[in-house]
Write a protein that binds this DNA or RNA. Structure first.
Lengths: 125, 125
DNA sequence: TAAATATATGAGCATATGTTCAAATGAACG
DNA sequence: CGTTCATTTGAACATATGCTCATATATTTA
């Protein structure tokens, strides 16, 4: 924990902005300087932050399924489902294989679901 | 794992939709019938799915801070930061206390950060 | 080759979201 | 009491997002 003793003001050139605890800002800024991957984290969570995609992942966690089955299961248009599956595939969260006319989707990585499960547990308390 | 033996078609009243693997859909549907909390999970992730909010949480994970310090740290308008802190507070992810003119924000629950850290680890591989 | 079926894709549209700007609170201090 | 400073808040605006609709692609089958 950082203590907040020193009080000082600093003017910034862009827009006049004030800093109260210079030392704290300095410390935190250094601690955060490493992880520029936070943007990627946000992007990953952005994928999870949609009801449709969450339900798709949840369903595929149970079993590999084709597009029309997923559409029926979620009570959605085949087109809408296909669009979202595309998003999930681009993010490498799901993979697919073709068998004749039918395309089967499945999770490309079981590990990703752990994040989901943990969040689920968090909600449940 | 569910096997995909039976092939059959079903018409649905709303829009004409086709189901190929009735048994799989049935099984998965039952498995998913319990967790209606998936919507809440999506909502939680929606909060994480933004660069600004992620960085705010990341910063507060290091130390309690006031609004103007956070604004300086993230190089953002104090107003924009305040708006997002409000969102995080409504979601009970952060809390605040007033000390004179200055309002200090901090994480209301360290546990929530575990989800973030896990996702961070996932990215790192 | 033509028809049928499963899926993919692009454009359009309506809504959601995040930021800015201006103005309102709220507290300390002369 | 009026001024200053930190923060909050509401409206406006621009962009992002997810769905629909029509159409394209791909594969099987008659």
């Amino acid at each position: 924990m950082v203590q907040t003793k020193k009080i000082s003001d600093v003017d910034v050139e862009t827009c006049e902005q004030t800093v109260i605890h210079t030392d704290v800002v300095q410390t935190v800024s250094e601690a955060m300087s490493n992880d520029e991957d936070m943007d990627n984290v946000a992007d990953l969570f952005k994928l999870f932050g949609d009801r449709t995609r969450i339900r798709l992942l949840r369903a595929l966690y149970q079993s590999e399924m084709c597009v029309c089955d997923l559409a029926y299961l979620l009570d959605m248009t085949q087109s809408a489902v296909s669009h979202q599956l595309r998003v999930l595939k681009q993010a490498k969260l799901v993979k697919n294989r073709r068998e004749g006319k039918v395309v089967y989707y499945s999770l490309s990585d079981q590990h990703v679901m752990q994040i989901l499960v943990q969040a689920y547990d968090h909600i449940k308390e």
